[in-house]
Amino acid sequence: MAPTPSRPVRILIAKVGLDGHDRGAKVVAAALRDAGMEVIYTGLRKTPEVVVRAAQEEDVDAIGVSILSGAHGTVLPRLRSLMDASDLEDVLLVAGGTIPQDDADDLLDRGVVDHVFTPGASLASIAAALSDAVDARRASA
């Protein structure tokens, strides 16, 4: 019998907090769909609790958070904490937006996020990084 192909990568794209600018999140979501991923977009102004609940309900491989407000130092650790408490340790947490490199390095070093995509990251590189990371996570499960 032939092996069953794995399901497409499922990613939840979220805008957390009061940040009301979602054009970049929508562009990334469209690019990920074009790359064959299943994308769920939560819309604007969601709480970390709502995002984690949606991730559970949608059985996603990754949560992508777009942050332009400067709240990354608060929002991302809160999301990681809620994910860990909800048995979502196998779900990737990635962030994009205006996150200073020193802050991105700190979030990565502490294991808060799995990837940070800053302005200028190509859509193709984002899709490839997510696909590779999900494939690696699935292979180790």
Rank of each mutant, 00 (worst) to 15 (best):
V50L: 13
V65R: 09
G43F: 08
V51L: 05
I63N: 04
V91W: 00
V65H: 08
Y41W: 13
H72P: 07
D59L: 08
D84R: 02
T42I: 14
E38W: 13
G64F: 07
V91F: 01
R80C: 03
A85Q: 13
P48T: 12
G64D: 00
I63T: 03
L68A: 09
K46F: 11
E57Q: 05
D61G: 10
V51M: 09
P48F: 02
D87N: 06
L92A: 00
R53P: 15
T47M: 08
L76C: 10
A62C: 11
R45G: 09
G73M: 11
A85P: 00
V60T: 07
S69F: 11
K46M: 13
K46V: 02
Q56T: 15
D84K: 06
L88H: 08
V39H: 02
V50K: 14
R45I: 11
L82F: 10
D90A: 10
S81I: 10
L44M: 09
K46N: 13
A55S: 00
E89G: 14
Q56A: 14
V51K: 00
S66E: 01
T74R: 05
S86D: 04
K46C: 13
T47K: 10
G43V: 05
T47C: 02
L68S: 01
R78A: 07
L76H: 04
L82M: 05
G70W: 07
G73K: 06
E49R: 13
Q56V: 14
I67Y: 07
D84M: 02
K46R: 15
G64M: 01
G43E: 11
L88M: 13
M83R: 03
T47P: 07
A54Y: 12
A55T: 02
E58L: 12
L82T: 01
A55H: 01
T42K: 10
I40T: 15
R45V: 11
G70K: 09
L82C: 00
V60A: 00
V65L: 01
D61N: 14
V91H: 05
P48C: 03
R45M: 14
L92Y: 05
D90T: 01
R80F: 02
I40E: 15
L44Y: 07
T74E: 11
V91R: 01
G64K: 06
E49M: 12
A85F: 06
G43Q: 11
E57H: 04
T74Q: 08
L79D: 04
R80E: 04
L76M: 07
L82V: 03
A71T: 11
